[in-house]
Design a protein around this nucleic acid. Structure first.
Lengths: 101, 101
DNA sequence: TAGGCATTTAGGTAAATGCCTAAATTTGTT
DNA sequence: AACAAATTTAGGCATTTACCTAAATGCCTA
């Protein structure tokens, strides 16, 4: 885990919000959009962009960055790319800050 | 604790390094510079700037940012401003990431 | 294989950050 | 009061980040 890379990918309010939303999709996304939701996949790019009220390309890049930093996991299925949280990485980050920062 | 503010103040390699150095000043700063060292004060701006190999004004601003974000505590004494880590805030950050991110 | 939908990549502008030097301020000392 | 030492503030240039729109790509289905 590259601490600086991870921290940079967290240093933006929208990206922090995305992590919150993905923690409990049913609490933050309209039920219709989650019709095919499964925890193993997550939520697709355009639904997240809509929730963020930002353009799809911008959010697409945000999500990719967070996946590179390992905070999210991407899964391509059919036309869609789904993103979910990487809980292990998030706990690892908490540990790293607790013990090594 | 303002999470985004704290994360932003950590999103720079030099500022991360400063936190590491202040964790164990004797391991990172020349002994002469720590002649008057005390854990309750920390290390002064110019010693930190020297260690970082950066200009004093740049490091002065970094340190102030980190103090505003509560990661560091500043103490002015005589001509010097000393900075030390705020261990409580760092642990609080780790907890926040663990439980709320 | 043509068309359509979701996503990604490219490319551009505005704002933020990184870091510097010079000038101003603070505080202790003649 | 005047000078010196440490720090802070101001101002500037270069790089990065934040966003957007337009164009390209990937993956369906007719």
């Amino acid at each position: 885990m590259k601490l600086l890379e991870v921290i940079k990918s967290l240093s933006n309010q929208t990206r922090l919000d995305i992590l919150t939303w993905l923690k409990d999709p049913f609490a933050y996304f309209p039920a219709e959009e989650l019709a095919d939701y499964s925890p193993s996949l997550g939520v697709c790019v355009s639904d997240i962009a809509k929730k963020a009220k930002m353009s799809i390309p911008t959010v697409s890049v945000y999500l990719k960055n967070m996946a590179v930093a390992e905070l999210l996991v991407a899964t391509r299925k059919d036309k869609w790319t789904y993103y979910k949280r990487n809980e292990e990485a998030i706990q690892q980050l908490a540990q790293l800050i607790k013990n090594n920062l």
